[in-house]
């Protein structure tokens, strides 16, 4: 004999409470916060370092760096002179909202226009944990293959922007089989409103449209 009880509770409510706290803090101060997600090696840190240097006169950027081990990425961001806080997850495959809450306390949020969270390199787990961000940015590089939106739909369905990085490799005649139009079409099937910017953080190609989007998004938020 047994008895059944309906519960109807959200399982990740502890994480969601911190996410709400983060989003309230950022909302009150009108700060844009973007959660950057991709597999390892897609170029997240290179994109961030270049973006920080190229827009520094217009947008003040701070960074929360998530890594399983080491502070190598934080060192690369530090070289740009942007404020950065490192979170070493010690094996965990994603950042949690509580970790981001602690990092936000260490950043000079009041002096910034935009906070990037560089999540742990992983195309699956980080997409399931809300951090209180204003939006997610997914990065896919040309060497990873053009089938990724179909194989990892969650992150493409949830992101505001898709950055297709390393497009310089396509034009150099390298042996990279990657159809930008296929990625575009598959991502749009999951997410009609997603902004898609093909870029090369190495050569700077296509980066201006990304910078324009960042400038407009920070302006829209602060202008409210």
């Amino acid at each position: 004999m047994s008895r059944k009880i309906d519960v109807g509770k959200r399982i990740l409510s502890a994480n969601e409470r911190y996410a709400l706290k983060n989003s309230q803090l950022l909302g009150e101060q009108k700060k844009l916060c973007l959660n950057m997600i991709s597999s390892p090696g897609s170029g997240k840190t290179t994109i961030l370092a270049r973006t920080i240097r190229d827009v520094k006169d217009k947008i003040k950027i701070g960074v929360i760096e998530g890594d399983i081990q080491t502070d190598l990425d934080a060192e690369r961001i530090k070289a740009t002179e942007a404020p950065v806080v490192q979170i070493e997850t010690g094996g965990s495959c994603h950042l949690s909202a509580a970790q981001v809450s602690g990092a936000l306390e260490k950043l000079p949020v009041g002096d910034l226009d935009l906070i990037f969270i560089e999540n742990v390199g992983n195309l699956v787990c980080p997409s399931a944990f809300e951090l209180g961000e204003s939006g997610k940015i997914v990065v896919l590089s040309a060497t990873e293959g053009d089938d990724k939106p179909v194989k990892y739909p969650a992150i493409f369905a949830k992101s505001k922007v898709l950055l297709i990085n390393k497009i310089d490799l396509l034009e150099a005649g390298a042996q990279v089989d990657f159809d930008v139009e296929r990625v575009r079409a598959d991502a749009r099937k999951l997410n009609k409103g997603i902004e898609i910017f093909p870029i090369s953080a190495q050569t700077g190609e296509g980066m201006n449209r990304w910078y324009d989007w960042l400038a407009e998004s920070t302006k829209n938020l602060q202008g409210d």
Binding site: S2, R3, I5, V7, K9, R10, L190, K192
Partner: peptide
């Protein structure tokens, strides 16, 4: 596309 269903604990069965 409608919002994805959240992770929910729907029901628990207890021993009497």
């Amino acid at each position: 596309l409608l919002p994805d269903a959240p992770l929910l604990l729907e029901q628990i069965e207890f021993e009497m």
